Amino acid sequence: MKKIVLALALSLVPAPALAFPVTVDSCGKPLTFDAAPRRAVIQDLNMSEMAFALGLQSSMVGVTGITGWYKVDDTFKSKLGAIPELASKEPTLENLVAADPDFFFAGWYYGMKPGGDVTPDTLAPYGIKTLVLTESCVHLDKTRPPASMDLLYGDMAKLGKIFGKEQQAEALISGWKAELAEIGKKIGGNGQTRVFLYDSGEDKPFTAGKFAMPTALIHEASGMNIMSDMETSWGTTSWETVATRNPQFLILLDYQDGAGYKKLLDFLHAHPVMKETDAVKNNRFVALRYAELTPGPANIEAIAKIAKALHPEAF
Rank of each mutant, 00 (worst) to 15 (best):
A208S: 14
A35D: 08
A291V: 10
T134E: 15
I300N: 10
A221M: 02
V138L: 10
Y255L: 11
K262Q: 15
M112Q: 10
S228Y: 11
S26E: 09
D257S: 14
L10V: 06
K158F: 02
P145Y: 11
V41H: 06
A106T: 07
Q248S: 06
A221S: 01
I251P: 08
V132C: 01
D257H: 14
L268I: 07
H219F: 03
D141K: 07
E170G: 06
D73C: 06
F211D: 05
L96M: 08
D266H: 02
D25A: 13
R289C: 03
K210M: 13
G189H: 09
A35R: 13
G188I: 02
N190C: 11
A216T: 08
I218L: 06
M47N: 14
K79P: 01
T67W: 00
E292V: 01
P145S: 05
K210T: 07
P295H: 05
N246L: 00
L80T: 09
K262E: 14
L56Q: 08
K158A: 14
L152E: 08
N299I: 11
G116Y: 02
W234H: 09
L86Q: 07
A279N: 05
K79E: 13
Q256Y: 14
T134H: 12
T244K: 11
R245S: 11
R284I: 04
D203Q: 13
A51K: 13
H139N: 14
S136Y: 00
L253T: 05
L131W: 08
D155Q: 12
G201M: 02
T92H: 04
D25K: 12
I303K: 05
P146T: 11
N282S: 14
T119G: 04
G28I: 09
I183T: 07
T207M: 05
N95M: 08
A169D: 01
P214F: 01
D102H: 02
L10K: 01
Q167V: 15
T64G: 10
G115E: 06
K113A: 10
D100K: 15
I66R: 08
D203W: 00
D141C: 08
S78T: 15
I300T: 09
R144T: 03
G235I: 03
Q168M: 12
A53T: 04
A36G: 09
D254Q: 06
N46E: 12
S148L: 02
S48W: 05
E276V: 00
E292L: 00
M1R: 13
K275A: 04
G258A: 07
F105M: 06
D278S: 13
I251Q: 01
V280Y: 10
H219S: 14
G175R: 07
G184R: 01
S78A: 15
K275F: 00
E182M: 06
I306W: 08
F315W: 15
K142Q: 12
E94F: 05
A17V: 15
E220I: 02
S136R: 05
G116P: 02
V61A: 08
T207Q: 03
P312S: 04
P14N: 03
V273P: 01
S200H: 14
E231Y: 07
A99L: 13
M1A: 15
D155E: 13
A99H: 09
L140A: 13
Q43F: 15
A208W: 02
D74C: 03
L197H: 10
M149H: 12
